[in-house]
Amino acid sequence: MTSGYNFTQKHILGIHHLSADDIDFILKTADSFKEISTRAIKKVPTMRGLTVVNLFFEPSTRTRLSFEIAAKRMSADTYNISASTSSTVKGETLIDTARNISAMKPDIIIMRHSFAGAPDMLTRYIDASVINAGDGSHEHPSQGLLDMMTVREHKGRLEGLKVTIVGDILHSRVARSDILGFTRMGARVFVYGPATMIPPGLEELGATVCSSLEEAVADADVVMTLRIQKERQKDPLFPSLREYAQKYGINRRILDRARPDAIVMHPGPINRGVELMPDVADGPRSVILDQVTNGVAVRMALLYLVMGNS
């Protein structure tokens, strides 16, 4: 990190907007906060009197809970608003909703939305800091950061690592945040999935597109699989879940091609037996629960850091 570094982000809209120094600083801050969650009394007064609103336009239990726990451990007051996207289409627009919430003077709004760019739009109408908790197929920056934190914990570094991401890259906001983040930190990211799930121009994001699962996993330090969203089967991008599991699922045999100390990651929730076989998901290389634990620390860090700039 260059001397005189300052974290200047007011919003966390995507990894795209973060420099390597920003990412490094967030991860270091998260490392220091992680210890709080191991105390008997898991609470610090850092954000006492501050208001954090979870504005979720898309159902999510895990991410919302993780942000809520993070905010509460920092002593912020938290409120959850679940709005369905369809209701905003019919009547109240996103801008109306944003202005109404803004009028109640929250300090931070954590937003999940099914449309890409909705958090960007929110920032144009409100004063509060906005943290993107996942917008459509765009980005999920806190997930990308917790993935980087988890890998760094296990590998001691990010630079030079081979990170492999397998699955539905087209629809995955996690994949975008991971590709941008890991490459910015000097790792090499390789992606693989059915060609129908590989969008054009991934190379411009910094990823290398592989032509076989074997090639993708070979000598990888990190193997990450993405959740197959079964609801997308209305507009099927592959013939059947059975075939997907056979051709694209990560099993122990394929994992043998990775480095002996490779770790296995998944953003959850897992479709066991589809993208990840149970013996791998629950095996010794799986760091999936570490990801969940680190999620709270990363989100505490994000809340803390954006507060310093709002």
Partner: peptide, 13 residues
């Protein structure tokens, strides 16, 4: 348009 920009923005191309 479908291309690198739609991929980056996560918009359907």
């Amino acid at each position: 348009n479908e291309g690198p920009v739609s991929t980056r923005l996560g918009l359907k191309g």
